[in-house]
Computed example of a mutant assay.
Amino acid sequence: MTRFGYTLMTEQSGPRELVRYAAAAEERGFDFEVSSDHFSPWLVEQGHAPHAWTLLGAVAQATSRVELMTYVTCPTIRYRPAVVAQQAATLQLLAEGRFTLGLGSGENLNEHVVGEGWPAIDARQDMLVEAMEIIRELLGGGLVTYDGAYFRVDSARIWDLPEDGVPIAVAVSGEKSVARFSGLADHLVAVEPDAELVRAWDGAHEGPSRKIGQLPICWDPDEGAAVARAHEQFRWFAGGWSVNADLPTPAGFHGASAFVREEDVADSIACGPDLDRIAESARPFLDAGFTDLAIVQVGDEGQDRFLEEAAEPLLERLRAL
């Protein structure tokens, strides 16, 4: 049976609000919670970007049951891989085994800020391979020295290490990335309900694995208000990941989405009060073979009301699918 999660969308809410939403989402019955890891919001209208790892440390203490995950962290430019390994080990201890480290090759929006430039896609994937090798070695215990094309590690050890390790999930987009990363990760992350991608992963990956997707929705008792909010907050989504990975600033996303209409957003994001229709929008992920699906309720406005009024009946409908 598919497991359903709640997204801590750091681009649209402040840290204290997100911790409160995390606790409420656990109470409402979500199976897991994922946090985006951004330095900037996609759009100025979203207005937030708290530090994901600090946030998840607080969430680990505010919750007791839900699994936690970064969705996703780029361990190559803004963060160094050895530091990501240390962060993941510490968070796993705080969460008492509930944490999964989600990794990906990142977006220019978040990585250019440290002044190291933005490599081409092949270089980014080469960097991610090295970073994952380092992270896996460090999380395995022992003293690690690594000399790669992009990263060096000199006699490093994680001193506070969880006994059962940290599962790793990786974002992939096609057969090439599946081939490169399936041997380095435990689980798959994807943002499109692509059955071919799931089959390719299952064919390349040894052993059982989770296939983790994400679905934006915009519930509101007023459908017009829901569509307007989804357009204001989430029109960046229309560009697709081939565009989204390379734009450097919220101003760039504003320009790229200037001609996206409200009806365009409503065609791709289920909006309004109809929980049956919202639940049905998850079906492509279920049909594609995803084992886990994280729901994004668009916008900070109305988030409390969504959790209080709509979350539980929506979960009932999703699980009935």
Score class of each variant (00 low, 15 high):
residue 87 Q to N: 10
residue 262 E to Y: 09
residue 29 G to T: 08
residue 282 A to I: 05
residue 318 L to N: 07
residue 140 G to V: 13
residue 305 R to W: 02
residue 79 Y to I: 03
residue 199 R to V: 13
residue 108 N to C: 08
residue 132 M to S: 13
residue 315 L to T: 05
residue 158 I to Q: 07
residue 81 P to E: 12
residue 69 M to S: 13
residue 234 F to M: 10
residue 73 T to V: 15
residue 245 A to S: 15
residue 320 A to I: 09
residue 64 S to I: 10
residue 280 E to D: 13
residue 172 V to H: 03
residue 177 S to T: 15
residue 168 I to W: 00
residue 131 A to L: 00
residue 171 A to M: 04
residue 166 V to L: 09
residue 25 A to M: 02
residue 213 G to S: 02
residue 230 A to Q: 04
residue 185 A to L: 04
residue 114 V to F: 11
residue 187 H to R: 05
residue 315 L to P: 03
residue 19 V to N: 11
residue 211 K to N: 03
residue 253 F to D: 01
residue 54 T to R: 11
residue 262 E to K: 13
residue 306 F to V: 05
residue 111 E to L: 06
residue 286 L to Y: 12
residue 160 D to L: 14
residue 247 L to M: 01
residue 204 A to F: 05
residue 245 A to N: 13
residue 226 A to P: 12
residue 6 Y to E: 07
residue 171 A to F: 09
residue 153 V to W: 03
residue 274 D to Q: 06
residue 305 R to A: 09
residue 128 L to Y: 13
residue 212 I to M: 11
residue 305 R to K: 04
residue 191 V to F: 14
residue 275 L to P: 04
residue 91 L to R: 01
residue 135 I to A: 09
residue 46 Q to W: 13
residue 318 L to M: 06
residue 184 L to V: 10
residue 284 P to N: 05
residue 100 T to Q: 08
residue 160 D to G: 12
residue 302 G to A: 05
residue 259 F to I: 02
residue 301 E to Q: 11
residue 31 D to M: 07
residue 7 T to C: 10
residue 270 A to L: 02
residue 109 L to A: 06
residue 175 E to W: 00
residue 85 A to N: 03
residue 119 P to N: 09
residue 253 F to L: 01
residue 165 G to L: 01
